[in-house]
Design a protein around this nucleic acid. Structure first.
Length: 434
RNA sequence: GCCCGGGUGGUGUAGUGGCCCAUCAUACGACCCUGUCACGGUCGUGACGCGGGUUCAAAUCCCGCCUCGGGCGCCA
């Protein structure tokens, strides 16, 4: 349709063909208005019954909402029209009619449950505020890529069908691979390390991860997008700097390039880019501060993982993004290195949004002997991970990195209440289609 | 995995044993209306997730199933 004009580009004096969806028909009697919507916006088409071809009027007023139509006519300046211009049609074609009864209302007059919306995503995305989420998501991913590239990282893609998991076999989706047992990968962790250990040195990946946990919360998905970084000759502090830069650049990009989307989402007035540097709290300080809030029934002691309630209480207390560093070694995975001067303390860190965990990272164990010991301590068979561990015998530099939850980033930036809203076709405990 | 709460026209809801052959909005159908912009007006169509039970009487209470949402654990 090379002769098609976007609604936003129709100027007074033009003679155009506009094509899109019928948003609404308002029939006032002698005069009627059809609002046509496309990806660029909306335009009003005017039908005057006494002055126009009868068949044309019949087509215009007989069409159902959300049908796809193309309208050819003159664009005129019209202050009474919503956008200041109006099309007087000479011809109209119903390209694809829509059933009159819609499974949800794209004009937004009546709410729909999230599950109804997800079952009918195509119609749901016809709403400005829904489309805005995915425009913002695209911008966030673009900003992340650009930041990584500025930091001299190479984008990589690692396999999603794997022979072994990252941390064991409990939370993986099993599949059959030509008669052999295989799994959907839960993280690019091991692969990105192998590449950071080549002289590519600094890598990032934005790709899917799969987790078979049967959780049912507004912040978990079984298929999610992980934004991963791994850098040779980096320590945990360098990795934290990179994580902070990526998150900050996402906020900045949204503030700069998503003005319309923020308006559609009603966030334009109070959208803020984090200004202060993200504070870095040690695990020990963290549990002390959580205990001090008095929100928890039972006080946390050294070695406890942080309960959701504690994360939220601390988030309110801190009031911004923050890091938690120096976790007890025992609650971090085997590939995280311990501090040289205290083997009870790991170099692992989390980056927290006030409402939830966004990033998990750390300095990796690059010393072969310690790595193999770590496998054994976690009850894993190092032989199964031979493809991974053997590369640590051929010159593996110290390195560090992190994984950032892509949907959680989108969700926290936009204040979405459910992570499923940040994915077009979410996979969760009970949803496998569409 | 453990725990809690829901399922009522196409969509979103009201309803807590008889006032319910079920409320309201929107959508849909018909008619009226020449400047709407959530257009307005009149009339109309349309629903109690499935199966069993309790009761004179069930949308409402009980049991099972299906299904949706949430809390925790765990995590990104």
């Amino acid at each position: 349709m090379q002769d098609r004009t976007y609604t936003a580009d129709a100027e007074p004096g033009d003679h155009v063909t506009v094509a899109g969806w019928v948003h609404e028909v308002r029939d006032l009697g002698g005069i009627a208005f059809l609002i046509l919507r496309d990806s660029a916006g909306r335009i009003q088409v005017k039908f005057e019954k006494d002055e126009m071809d009868e068949e044309l009027v019949e087509t215009g007023l007989g069409v159902s909402r959300e049908s796809v139509v193309s309208v050819t006519g003159a664009v005129e300046e019209e202050p009474r029209a919503p956008t200041g211009v109006e099309v007087t049609p000479e011809g109209m074609e119903v390209v694809a009619p829509a059933d009159p009864e819609l499974p949800l209302d794209p004009s937004g007059k009546v709410d729909a449950d999230l599950s109804t919306r997800l079952d009918n995503r195509t119609l749901d995305l016809r709403k400005d505020e829904v489309q805005a989420v995915f425009e913002v998501r695209a911008e966030i991913l673009r900003a992340a890529r650009e930041t990584f590239r500025d930091l001299n990282c190479t984008e990589i893609n690692t396999p999603k069908i794997v022979a072994t998991g990252t941390e064991g076999g409990t939370e993986l989706f099993p599949i059959t691979y030509f008669g052999e047992e295989a799994f959907m990968n839960q993280s690019p962790q091991l692969f990105k390390q192998l590449i950071a250990g080549s002289n590519v040195e600094r890598v990032f990946e934005i790709g899917p991860i799969f987790r078979a946990e049967e959780h049912n919360t507004p912040r978990h998905l079984n298929e999610a997008t992980s934004i991963d970084f791994e850098g040779a000759f980096c320590d945990e502090s360098d990795a934290m700097d990179v994580a902070e830069a990526v998150v900050r650049s996402a906020y900045e990009a949204v503030a700069e390039n998503c003005t319309e989307e923020l308006e559609a989402l009603d966030l334009a007035d109070d959208f803020e880019v984090p200004e202060e540097e993200f504070p870095r709290l040690t695990y020990e300080e963290t549990i002390e501060r959580i205990n001090a809030t008095g929100e928890l029934d039972d006080q946390l002691v050294w070695g406890d993982d942080l309960p959701t309630e504690g994360e939220k209480a601390l988030g309110e207390d801190v009031g911004s993004h923050y890091f938690i560093t120096d976790w007890p070694s025992e609650i971090k995975p085997f590939y995280i290195q311990d501090h040289d001067d205290d083997e009870q303390l790991s170099t692992g860190f989390d980056l927290m949004h006030p409402t939830m965990e966004l990033v998990s990272g750390g300095k990796r164990e690059h010393r072969y002997e310690q790595l193999v010991d770590g496998f054994e301590q976690q009850g894993l068979d190092p032989e199964q991970f031979d493809y991974y561990t053997k590369m640590f015998r051929y010159g593996m530099p110290p390195h560090a990195g992190f994984g950032l939850g892509g949907e959680r980033l989108v969700m926290t930036i936009l204040g979405l209440e459910n992570i499923r809203e940040a994915v077009l076709f979410p996979r969760d405990r009970q949803r496998l289609s569409p």
